[in-house]
Amino acid sequence: MINKTVKNVQEALQGVQDGMTLMLGGFGLCGIPENCIQELLRIGVKDLTCISNNAGVDDFGIGLLLQKRQVKKMIASYVGENAEFERQLLSGELEVELNPQGTLAERIRAGGAGIPAFFTPAGYGTEVGEGKESREFNGKMYLMESWLKADFSFVKAWKGDTAGNLIYKGTARNFNPMMATAGKITVAEVEELVPAGELDPNMIHTPGIFVQRIFQGEKYEKRIEQRTVRQA
């Protein structure tokens, strides 16, 4: 079996350069590649285009990259909960392209699956549709949307093996499986890395072919945005 293991996060991010397009998995702060984000901060690459459903919060996730002005453009569906983001957007320092969430997910899936464009009804008749081709199918109007690909995709999984196979846990799956398919180089960070053969092939969510580099993250904070509980 081809071994995809790299020693650590430093090795995993080798080749990441200024001006690159990156995909970062996660929904809110759930299932984000925490260790890769820390390493992006450390190496200080800038002028990045980041594709991610959200932009983190002020002091965690992609919010940290924004604080250090490393992001030139953000492609996302929802960017609330982030004051620094708002400031940079209003001052024109940051470029933002907002996509309907399902359109964003499908653009990434299309990128990984070799489909350059597709039609979706989401956003037809809204400003999302401005300048895009629209077409009628069975009496309903659809917008043409194009694929998304990245120089590097950073995904977070629960378990992975040395062959690059991944299993996600809970709703930390979200955008990670599609992003894993759409990176020229996909880096997977996992909570537990095991030898090939230890994961049940029937349970794999992302097959190893999509993953070029895998490592076990040093630590996971797994911050919670809205801690809601009920009485026992």
Binding site: V79, L89, T103, Y124
Partner: peptide
Amino acid sequence: KMVKGMGGAMDLVAS
């Protein structure tokens, strides 16, 4: 005002 984004709302209402 600050634009937070449409999230999944456009996909939901379109379909």
